[in-house]
Nucleic acid binder design. Structure first.
Length: 280
DNA sequence: CCAAGGCCTGAATG
DNA sequence: ACATTCAGGCCTT
């Protein structure tokens, strides 16, 4: 097999995209919506529901993508340092709630909150003689009270979680439709959900709606761009407005191309490792 | 339009 | 110990 098509399961899971994953006896187990995925070290999947999900995006031509994005020193270093790092193709509803919960928080706390949400509102199942809680369906979270959601440790985000679930339940947010939409239409639509701004929207688009030109600009990415790209992207202010975000994204697409989202993932992973930040 | 302030929570920092 | 800061932003003023 082409080495470009190999998958680094460990680093892909530990790159800030997913939270409800744990390792057990050399296998990674993760909650993906109403399914559980068991993954071996090669990225081969056995799923609880026997569905065929291309969770590690094996369909992507990594040779072409890497050729496309590795156009400067930083991305060259990053793709060399983390071969096999993949974007993940997640359940959209779980992804939406996860990144609403993620805002102004950190990985440990996000994971803790999502686990409590699953335990409280998700279905308990046994898989490989282990107990798991599936992620709740939109209806379940939509019908929960704000207080019940707050009890999961999400703080002021509880009302966003409830409303996001309600909008998903009512198909005001239709993930299947958004998968077919182009980037800008899908982004505009997903940003209608309270608690979803530019950064959170781009995470959802990139990690669950197949929009590879998404480039989530969080504080880390802003810092990376300032640090390594010396004014190339002309970041002026600390708090970045919607307009500035759009303008910056435009420049980013012009620079990295249509697989910019992969560039983001490699750069983010590299910088967080440099700072020895903890993952799952 | 833009800038500034507030916000649940809990681990990390001093 | 105990207070303060900070963390993968967003919303309101």
């Amino acid at each position: 097999m082409d080495e470009n098509q190999s998958i680094d399961v460990e680093n892909s899971i530990n790159s800030g995209q997913v939270f409800l994953w744990k390792k057990h006896n050399h296998f990674w187990y993760g909650i993906n919506g109403q399914d559980i995925l068991k993954v071996d070290s090669l990225g081969d999947i056995k799923s609880y529901r026997n569905t065929r999900v291309d969770f590690f995006r094996k369909r992507d031509d990594m040779a072409e993508i890497i050729k496309s994005i590795a156009i400067d020193n930083e991305t060259k270093n990053a793709v060399k340092k983390y071969p096999g790092l993949r974007l993940l193709d997640q359940d959209p509803f779980q992804c939406l709630i996860s990144f609403i919960v993620s805002s102004n928080s950190n990985i440990q706390k996000i994971k803790n909150s999502l686990e409590r949400i699953s335990r409280k509102f998700g279905t308990r199942v046994k898989f490989e003689s282990q107990e798991f809680f599936l992620f709740p369906k939109p209806e379940g979270l939509a019908k929960a009270s704000i207080n019940e959601i707050t009890d999961c440790g999400v703080g002021y985000r509880a009302k966003y979680v409830k409303e996001a679930a309600n909008m998903s339940f009512l198909k005001m947010i239709d993930f299947e439709y958004l998968k077919k939409s182009d980037y800008h239409d899908a982004k505009e639509n997903i940003c209608l959900v309270p608690g979803v701004g530019n950064k959170v929207a781009d995470c959802i688009l990139l990690f669950s709606l197949n929009k590879l030109e998404s480039f989530p600009l969080d504080r880390w990415m802003i810092r990376i761009l300032e640090k390594y790209y010396a004014g190339q992207f002309q970041i002026t202010t600390k708090t970045i407005t919607d307009r500035q975000y759009d303008a910056l994204h435009e420049k980013i697409i012009n620079h990295y191309g249509r697989y910019a989202g992969y560039a983001q993932q490699f750069l983010f992973k590299m910088e967080r490792e440099n700072y020895k930040k903890k993952w799952l």
